[in-house]
Each structure stands twice: as C-alpha cells, then as structure tokens.
C-alpha cells in the first residue's frame, strides 16, 4: 500500500530525513518511535504534503501512485489521512460544515455521489457516538476552545468519517489522559480492517498497549535504525532511547 524508499527531506537548509525505507501492507499496524528531533513529525508532514518540506531524494508510492506528485487534497482523496499532533482551531467554521465539506469533497474525488443530508447526519451521529463526543461540539467552531482530549477525539472522528486506506496518527497520545487514550484507541481499533492500515507515530509506548502494532520501527537521526515487533517498544520503554543511541554509535 505504502512504499517509502530512501526518502531524504529537509526544511530550509536543515536535512532531517536521511534515507527512510518502509513498506506498509493492508491490514498492518506500524509504529514509529523515536526521541525528540529524530524526524518523526517531519515524516508525517512529508507524507501528508505539508509545505516547506523539500524532498531531496527517494520516493514514496501509495497504491502504486507517486504520492509526492499529489497535492494534499489529492492525497486525502486517494485515502491518506493524517491525524494532526496540533489540530488547528478555526473560529467561525462549524465542525459540521467542515466535515460535511470534507466528506463530500473526498466522495467527489472518489467518483461517489455526495451524501444527502439525512445520510450524512446518520453517519455523523454514529461516528460521534463511537468517539464518545458530545453533540454540542458539532455546532461549535472547529476545535475552538476544545480540550486537548476533545481535539484528538475530533481527529479520529474525522478519520472515521473519511474512511482512509492509511491513517497516520502523529503523536495522537500526547497530552491525553488514560481515559481519552482508551477512547481514541477504541476508535482506531474499530476502524481497522484487512484493507486499511495504520501508522502510529509516538514518543511513548503506552498508546501501543491499546493499539497493538504488528511492527515497531525506531527512528533516530533521520533513519530507521531498528525494526522489530511489539517487544521492541517494551524494550525501549524499559531501557530508554539512550540504549538505541549507544547501539547506533557502535
């Protein structure tokens, strides 16, 4: 589904990604862990198409298409979703209006008819219930005045509405208490099936207690320096990132 080969990227003059290789197949859950500044969020940004990141080498294909040639909205249409680490507050734009536009844009891109008002409302209510979100959030401005937990739940709610093939969760657990983590993880687990995939980017392994990965990769200094199964995450938790740093140095 996603194939990243020898990906190099920089922001301004600073080289951040220095040759990433990663393949994700349908039905899989991958986790990328790593210390601060290792390039985790840069990888998420490059995949979603954020401006100001320049790919200097390598390639990314998504279901056979050259992902890096697509605009961010086309990537979403193709089925890529990024749950933001810092969801943007947009005063004056209601959550309903936003999600309705997004759903119908994506449907249009995929050659589907727009959802009618009744179908849309039904879908929205179902997904909100899944994320244990209060209905009152719908008529409020997007993310404005939402708590940290509400923002992250709103991200997963959007994911559930847009039904992507690949969901990238960028530090979705940061700033969440244990109850919110459980709700977010439940949303992700309910979304998972054999046709889609999830890439979890996280600093801590605690989210991985709830969203159990098939593969864990350690990102350090712009490269994946170690890959393994779930046990690798537990080892990192126990030993800290210093053990990776010393291993890499050797």
């Amino acid at each position: 589904m996603l194939k990243i080969s020898n990906l190099h990227a920089r922001i301004e003059e600073k080289q951040i990604l220095k040759g990433i290789n990663l393949e994700i197949k349908p039905g899989e859950v991958h986790a990328i862990m790593g210390p601060n500044g290792s390039g985790k969020s840069t990888l998420a940004s490059v995949l979603a198409g954020r401006e100001h990141f320049e790919v200097t080498e390598g390639s990314v294909t998504f279901d056979g298409k050259d992902l890096l040639e697509l605009a961010p909205e086309e990537r979403a249409g193709e089925g890529l979703f990024l749950a933001f680490q810092y969801p943007v507050e947009i005063p004056g734009l209601t959550t309903t209006n936003f999600i309705k536009t997004a759903v119908n844009e994506v449907r249009k891109y995929r050659g589907q008819e727009p959802l009618d008002a009744v179908g849309f409302l039904k879908l929205m209510k179902e997904k909100m219930a899944l994320m244990e979100m209060d209905q009152s959030l719908l008529s409020r401005s997007l993310n404005e005045g939402f708590s940290g937990g509400e923002k992250k739940r709103n991200e997963i709610f959007q994911m559930a509405m847009l039904e992507p093939k690949l969901a990238i969760l960028d530090e979705t657990d940061s700033g969440l208490d244990i109850d919110a983590i459980r709700i977010v993880a439940n949303g992700v687990n309910r979304f998972r099936n054999e046709n889609n995939a999830v890439l979890v980017i996280t600093h801590y392994q605690r989210l991985l207690d709830y969203i159990v990965p098939d593969f864990v990769h350690v990102l350090y200094n712009g490269r994946i320096v170690k890959s393994g199964t779930r046990e690798l995450a537990l080892e990192l938790e126990e030993k800290g990132y210093d053990f990776i740093k010393s291993e890499v140095a050797v």
Partner: peptide, 26 residues
C-alpha cells in the same frame, strides 16, 4: 489552517472560501 483543510480533501479554492467565510463569521 489551509493545510489542515486540504489534508481533509478540501480543494484549495473551497478551503480558502471556508476560511474567509469563517473569518467573516463574527
């Protein structure tokens, strides 16, 4: 904000329109 909307599949033109309308809302 533009990137956020576009990352949800909203075209540049519509994203801009939604943001301007939101700006005018108050």
């Amino acid at each position: 904000a533009m990137f956020y909307l576009k990352s949800r599949g909203i075209t540049e033109k519509n994203a801009r329109s939604l943001l301007m309308h939101a700006f005018a809302e108050d």
